[in-house]
Design a protein around this nucleic acid. Sequence first.
DNA 1: CCCGTACTCAACCATATGGTTGATCAACCG
DNA 2: CGGTTGATCAACCATATGGTTGAGTACGGG
Lengths: 115, 115
Amino acid sequence: MDDDELVDLGFTALADPVRRAIVARLSRGPATVNELAEPFAISLQAVSKHVRVLEQAGLVTKGREAQRRPVHLAPEALERLTAWIDGYRLARERSFRRLDALLAEPRDDTGGAAR
Amino acid sequence: MDDDELVDLGFTALADPVRRAIVARLSRGPATVNELAEPFAISLQAVSKHVRVLEQAGLVTKGREAQRRPVHLAPEALERLTAWIDGYRLARERSFRRLDALLAEPRDDTGGAAR
DNA sequence: CCCGTACTCAACCATATGGTTGATCAACCG
DNA sequence: CGGTTGATCAACCATATGGTTGAGTACGGG
């Protein structure tokens, strides 16, 4: 699976409030699907689906202990997303710096290649 | 509009590859809707819709000069999203540190901070 | 062994989303 | 003023998404 795809799945995964809440919950430690479902007014199956979406995005991994499947957060995937954002946020700052440089360019009376 | 709502709209906005490409393009400076549409094989109207989604998420602002509406990136909104992610990424690291502390807890022979 | 617990699979439904085309609006150019 | 350019509005369509209920699978406990 290539990186772009994972970025796509990652943002798609975080686009849903239930899934963000799940991520928030998991940031405080692993939990089973049942535990994750508890705070929500939706069916267990729906939560199971959400977890799978998070899993396919690489945001989460599922373990197995007895019949329980404890879900863990996978922070590398979160980093991938911040990295994507920062790439373009910083690109923009670089543009600004370029502009600043331009504006600060010596106005050059005495030697002048005037525009 | 409250913060959660903006986070929601923000991630939803970035969940689409066309919109991510638009953000990428805008990170290198403002552009008109026509310019933004040029690299894509979709209609101008579709791009216009995408820009509106980005705008509602606060990721982008539209100016007005003559009949053109130059679109600018609004990096604060990007920061809001990284902040959201980092909040939970860091929360998890804090949990780890807490766990480490627990594991490192003095087992209390003679006062020794073992390991 | 078989029952209960913990989930997942499957079929289905309603609504949201991303795309289309066609009409319209707004501003400048001649 | 009339045409052209840039962009939006509106109606519509297909597919994706998030939810439901009901059946099925997998493992451990009594």
